[in-house]
Simulated scan of single mutants.
Amino acid sequence: MNIKSIEVWRQNLALSRPYTIAYHTTTEVENAFILIELENGMRGIGAACPMDYVTGETLEHTLAVLQSEPIKMLEGKPIERFQLYIKWFREAFAKYPAALAAFDMALHDAFCQTIGLSIVDFLGRRIKKMATSVTIGIKDVEGTLADAQEFVDGGFKILKVKLGQDLQMDIERLVKLRERFGYKIGIRVDPNQGYSYRDLLLFDALTESLQIELVEQPIKVADMSITSGLPADMRDQIAADESLLDARSAHKLLVPERSCGIFNIKLMKCGGIQGAQEIANVALSAGIDLMWGCNDESIVSITAALHVAFSQPHTKYIDLDGSFDLAQDVVSGGFVLEDGYMWPCDKPGLGVTIV
């Protein structure tokens, strides 16, 4: 089956709940979309939300890549060779992982529809469902508790709390969460590179009784190698995020000694499903757990991340709440969310409906 046409556009999805992390505040979100239509009328869709503060890729870069002549040249080509197309474009556009991710997932979606399989079943499903964390931005204690109460009332079992601006306030917020909810909820934290090495040691000592599940990218990327000197149990709790871009950076996190125990894979950092699988293979060989994260993204790319996450036996955490606070989207469906648990729809491809 040949590719009939390729359409690319940008869209502001807006946010119903702006939030703050250690180094910026987000009030709205624009995504780029690519739609690949086959001659039989089936359409595969991909979405990109570039992380310019991590990868240096802007939305303008993303759109330029997706609208480039090499992409248009795929019109008339057979969808069955989609994996080869992804390989070509990963080599040509290696500096633009979000664009690659959108291209990758759109091709997977279109191809899997032609064979009548969901992407996760095409990749090899290993997980049926899993609880996702839901994110609380940097707020005062009152705001933190208010958001937490709303999420817990909504059935969520795991909170991820953004930290990194004020260590004393960070500790107070976490203590108050435990006082309010006890230990019936899981707590993960993300300082977004906001801590020094000394801060990290102090944080670990002061939160020992709070049963923090994991600490995501606590220190700056340039300093990440320092954590290789931490005790093994502390490293086991550290999830590399901004430090983890691709399989090459995954290897660097492991030598000469591993600096973390968890890889946080985001499709927008690694270039899509193929790139994510490469990182997952590195992790599996080294005994590293997988976490799957996101930005503020369309249901399209959140669903793609969920599919590849559920194809990996060492996926231990998902943090795929990026579409929950969007004011609008271009698709519906994709995944089921029930009492804080997520799982992909059992439909061919991504299982989304374009609205």
Results as ranks from 00 to 15, higher is better:
232 A>G: 05
219 I>A: 04
228 S>T: 06
209 S>F: 11
233 D>L: 15
239 A>Y: 05
252 K>H: 10
248 R>Y: 11
234 M>I: 13
215 V>A: 09
240 A>N: 03
219 I>M: 08
243 S>H: 06
220 K>I: 07
250 A>K: 05
211 Q>Y: 04
236 D>Y: 00
221 V>L: 11
223 D>P: 06
206 L>E: 11
242 E>F: 06
216 E>D: 04
239 A>C: 04
234 M>L: 15
244 L>Y: 01
230 L>A: 12
212 I>Y: 00
214 L>Y: 04
237 Q>W: 01
230 L>C: 11
204 D>G: 01
243 S>E: 07
240 A>K: 00
218 P>S: 03
218 P>Q: 05
231 P>V: 07
251 H>Q: 11
234 M>A: 10
233 D>Y: 15
217 Q>M: 12
234 M>S: 13
224 M>A: 07
219 I>K: 13
208 E>V: 10
215 V>N: 08
239 A>H: 04
214 L>V: 01
208 E>I: 09
206 L>Q: 14
247 A>N: 03
249 S>H: 08
217 Q>I: 13
211 Q>M: 09
212 I>V: 09
249 S>I: 03
226 I>K: 14
232 A>D: 14
222 A>S: 15
204 D>R: 12
241 D>M: 03
224 M>Y: 14
221 V>F: 06
234 M>W: 15
217 Q>L: 08
241 D>H: 03
234 M>P: 02
235 R>H: 01
246 D>H: 02
212 I>G: 04
220 K>V: 09
222 A>V: 13
218 P>W: 05
214 L>D: 08
205 A>N: 13
212 I>H: 01
222 A>E: 15
218 P>H: 04
224 M>R: 12
236 D>A: 15
228 S>I: 07
245 L>G: 00
242 E>A: 01
227 T>W: 14
250 A>W: 04
217 Q>Y: 11
224 M>I: 15
247 A>P: 02
206 L>N: 06
210 L>V: 06
247 A>W: 07
236 D>K: 11
246 D>I: 04
252 K>L: 10
239 A>V: 02
250 A>R: 07
241 D>G: 06
221 V>D: 14
215 V>C: 11
